[in-house]
Simulated assay, not measured.
Amino acid sequence: MSLPDWFPRSSSAIDPAADLCPVCQGTGFEYDPIKRRSRRCLRCRGGSESLLERARIPARYRESSFDNFRVNPDDERQKSLVTAVLACRRYVKDYPVERGLGLLFLGPCGVGKTHLAVATANALMRLKRVPCLFYDFRDLLKAVQETYNPLTQTTELSVLRPVYDVDVLILDELGAGKATEWVRDTITHILNTRYNEQKTTIITSNYLDQPSDRYDETLEERIGVRLRSRLYEMCKTIQMFGEDYRQTYLNKRLLMQS
């Protein structure tokens, strides 16, 4: 499979000048014409490092990039994975996308959905200084639930305000956990708020629209008809299929040890 000319083979293929904030040129400060003095740059708030610190990316995925996503362009079985990487690179190149269009990664466990979702966010923060925020679907719901405890000092709005406002939200494992009416109502409210504000949302889910096993639930069954319909407008769907990388890696380790 041949790759397009714009597909970078390594990080060195990226123009270093693109890593500079267009407002402060990488200094971290801009001029305030009203107060007539320098202030911390409102666009990048001091650079990509501070954005990365605030993004809540799990340690396991913090170094995820397009370059370290393991895929073989010559393997026909990995065609969907190659297509996914190409789509993500193009998405970063074209960002911001009209009407806050996000990405929805669908596929079975272990094919690299979270890796590519975070790699996209990392590229947006590093190359375009776009604030991002990562949340596991279950952790977000748990954080909201904890605000109902009268002993806590946090409010529901204090948890959700960053989720509503951030330029790019990465919501991992959508549909995981028990699908109660409260869960559906809460996540529908969150995503509808972001949709109305034209905010970008990048989502991953193990639930497919057309599962290979008739006993598997569909994404629509997990999150409801209304929200699945909304996601068609909010996100470009990226289908990923292949072997479970974790299982393949474990089998190779066991084979080497035997």
Rank of each mutant, 00 (worst) to 15 (best):
Q239Y: 03
P4V: 07
E146A: 14
D209E: 14
I170E: 01
Q78G: 04
L191I: 00
E197W: 02
T120Y: 04
A121Q: 09
Y31S: 08
V82K: 06
R9N: 14
D67L: 11
R138V: 14
K35I: 01
I170N: 07
S11V: 10
P4D: 07
F7D: 03
G102Y: 05
N149P: 06
R226D: 09
E98L: 15
D75T: 05
T186D: 03
T27E: 11
Y61V: 09
L52K: 04
L81T: 06
F134S: 09
T114I: 11
S80K: 13
G102T: 01
L42V: 12
L219G: 04
D209G: 15
T200S: 12
T248K: 12
L174H: 07
G28L: 07
T237I: 11
I190K: 02
E30I: 07
R184F: 00
L124K: 11
P131W: 01
P4L: 13
C88A: 14
R194E: 00
E181C: 01
K178A: 08
L254N: 13
A179E: 12
R226F: 07
G47R: 05
D67Y: 13
G107W: 02
L231I: 09
C41Y: 00
R37Y: 03
P150L: 09
E156S: 13
A121I: 09
D94H: 12
T200A: 10
T114M: 04
R40Q: 13
W182Y: 12
Y95I: 04
N192A: 06
D172M: 05
L160Q: 11
E30K: 12
I223L: 12
T152H: 02
T114P: 06
Y91E: 07
S50G: 02
C235V: 08
K199A: 04
L86D: 02
T27V: 09
S212R: 13
D5F: 05
E30N: 06
M234Y: 09
W6G: 00
E63V: 04
A87S: 14
P150E: 09
Y164G: 02
P73L: 07
T154Y: 12
D67G: 01
M240L: 10
G107H: 06
F105G: 14
L86F: 01
S2K: 08
P73K: 06
T120H: 03
D15L: 05
C109T: 14
R222Y: 05
D5I: 08
M234A: 12
T218Y: 08
D75K: 12
I203L: 05
Y207T: 08
L231W: 00
E156G: 13
D5S: 14
P22V: 14
G46C: 11
A84Y: 03
L20G: 01
R184H: 04
S64A: 15
G47H: 12
P58V: 01
L106I: 14
V166L: 01
